[in-house]
Design a protein around this nucleic acid. Sequence first.
RNA 1: GCGGGCGUGGUGGAAUGGCAGACACGCUGGUCUUAGGAACCAGUGGGCAACCGUGCAGGUUCAAAUCCUGUCGCCCGCACCA
Length: 801
Amino acid sequence: MRYDYKTIDKKWQDRWQNQHAFEAVNDYSKPKYYALVEFPYPSGQGLHIGHPRPYTAMDIIARKKRMQGYNVLFPIGWDAFGLPTENYAIKNKVHPAEVTKKNIKHFTEQIKSLGLSFDWSREIDTTDPNYYKWTQWIFLQLFKKGLAYKKEIAVNFCTSCKVVLANEEVVGGVCERCGSEVVRKVKSQWMLKITDYAERLINDLEGLDFIERVKTQEINWIGRSEGAEVKFATTAGDDIVVYTTRPDTLFGATYMVMAPEHELITRWKEKISNYGDVESYREAAAKKSDFERTELVKEKTGVRLEGVLAINPVNGKEIPIFISDYVLATYGTGAIMAVPAHDTRDWEFAKAFSLPIIEVVAGGDVEKEAFTDVETGVLCNSGFLDGLEVKEAKKKITEWLTEKGIGRKKVNYKLRDWVFSRQRYWGEPVPLVYCEKCGWVPLPEESLPLRLPEVEHYEPTDTGESPLSKNTDWVNTTCPACGGPAKRETDTMPNWAGSSWYFLRYCDPNNPDCLASKEALDYWMPVDWYNGGMEHVTLHLLYSRFWAKFLYDIGVLSCKEPYLKRTAHGMILGENGEKMSKSRGNVINPETVISEYGADGLRLYEMFIGDFEKSAPWSQASIKGCKRFIDRVAGLTDIINGNGVTKELESSFHKTIKKVTEDIDSMKFNTAIAAMMSLVNEIYDHGSLTKDELLTLVTLLCPFAPHISEEINEFLGGTTLLSLSPWPSYDEAKTKDDSVEIAVQINGKLRGTVVVSAGATKDEMIDKAKTDEKIGKLIEGKTIIKEIAVPVKLVNIVIKP
RNA sequence: GCGGGCGUGGUGGAAUGGCAGACACGCUGGUCUUAGGAACCAGUGGGCAACCGUGCAGGUUCAAAUCCUGUCGCCCGCACCA
């Protein structure tokens, strides 16, 4: 039989679809398995060659689980709100909904051509009002529980996208998406209190089967630290509250620094004699983009507040106060006590401004550099703390502060609340109105969805106002509470909103009454295995865990964590080892690859290319090997000889079944394929195989290369879908050989091999090794110091040199 | 600076204490062919050899690509987080 993929691919894809082969059933008595891939953003560029890698991987897992008898949910949908679509729409004067429709159509065709076993009957689209109705509903619940609030804050504003960005969307001081400059802008924004969940988002990671680098990255991003909050009195009357992880160094605090944005500064306007200088420094800092702020890390700048002094609570000393942009308004309390002797940044600032440096932890040379070691130092110049180790001193001073009412233990996080407003058109409208009398009022739940209005123009504005604000007919409405005039919120939600709960909708995608029925959620959730990109760890993964926890708290979900297992795939790079991009000219188009090698060829190659978790360069040459392998499998139909099993191949079959079964579970797809290649090579060496053996082989191959496997199954007389046939089992006893070749080492160096029976004892192995002619000669007359035998592996004879 | 990871033939990669280089690409030679960028067969880490080989230098062990210490190089993430 020849492998004619051009007809075979289409034939089986149609059959799977017509027979509804991969649709999950709502039979809640069956054991379930929920396999999930990150749903794509349907961009205008179409499918990237990187997409099939995680899709095929999870497809293999889903297909195998299905063959093992599970009721498998393996869904797909579209994360379709977002900027690129909107920008394209603006440029080409088409409605974003039209663009989205077109892109989804193209993506659907491309994804279907890969033969993935998605359940298309549960397809979802975040821009569908029947879907975003529930995104809005969740937002309303957050609002009602006080977890969504509006606040005037300095936000990250992308000068090119003309939109506010979340912290997670600012990478290296520039916009994650377009690479343009990000500036600070004070705007009134909807915020979600993800910080309320910081502790749980860290703690609940324990016990989850997430790969370690995902856990570490989430933990680092949340950035928990323990320390103390301390009140410093000032000569201006108001106290300055600081957060420090080193309360033990309090005696060494020789000055204080506040962030330029700190609110006390304006309050002290009359008391600060050099207010002009202070004001101009603040203005300069506000103008700086994040990029500029981080660029100038080396040099410390600042202005002293003349006329106001702070008082160090431990010794009553008056110390100066500065403002400097090395102190962030958004972390801790926006003010610090500076201990130049034991903090590198404070040390640099103190040197630049000739401030005193007082050593309070002995162990370093604080004239040369800050001594920051917390393990070895011993307290000095610190009154009642003298002689204590850092750890003890921290405890004692915190107790002391608490007693005196000037401080307390405090846990802090780097994680900030989630900026949830975007000044763009193509997103979910916020279901709230503003009433002069009642304030922010939620729309009644039964009025949802609040649909995006049809508008003439959806260009973003330079002022940072949402395009929706120009649509006065839509904006002006009545207050649901008092019936008076009210205005709608004109900002929309970020594109992360729809993706924060989509995996729940798959459980019950058409339910008009709730986001998904309790029964469906209780049955399908949590997701058993979720694979996605590392780039989403501090964005989508964190956000969706937060929403899931919230939905757990309000009784919608019964599980505390949405995903039991999380893995991450590596990128597919260009042939030159660089990231694929149009500008580098190294882009590979999946459609071209499929037309040249077939869907199975592409699938196999993407799985064979290397370690699934690592990036790997594409190779136009190497894919041929996978195509060749499929041809050789198809060619096996020409050497079929009888039924049953052949003694010579039996053990190899059992070994291969075992290997493939185990390798799929641990995502070692490359070695699973290698094992099947080896088996095929062995069959050709043997010269023939039986019909049953070929059936076993294609059953194993089915999750990887389903089209050719189905075709061969039919050729062998199969009348039902191989994709729904039982997964092959193996006999552990038959994976073991009767006799094995073991290595014989002398002093750890390989000196020969001998064949022993598989059940040989250590003594038998050693005896056998010694009677080998070559080994015998080498040890003749030598003193044997030690003999080591490792069953079915090797014998090592240690002799005196 | 902090955190995570990596370093193995000409190439992608196997092997996670026990015969380094599975499997595949490429290459060399051959068969068949009008032809080969098709298919098939044989060979393919280096060295004439003894031997030598997993970035480099040490160490632990009967035994190290694998564990430990140091060092060099590369990739990714975070980055003035007090």
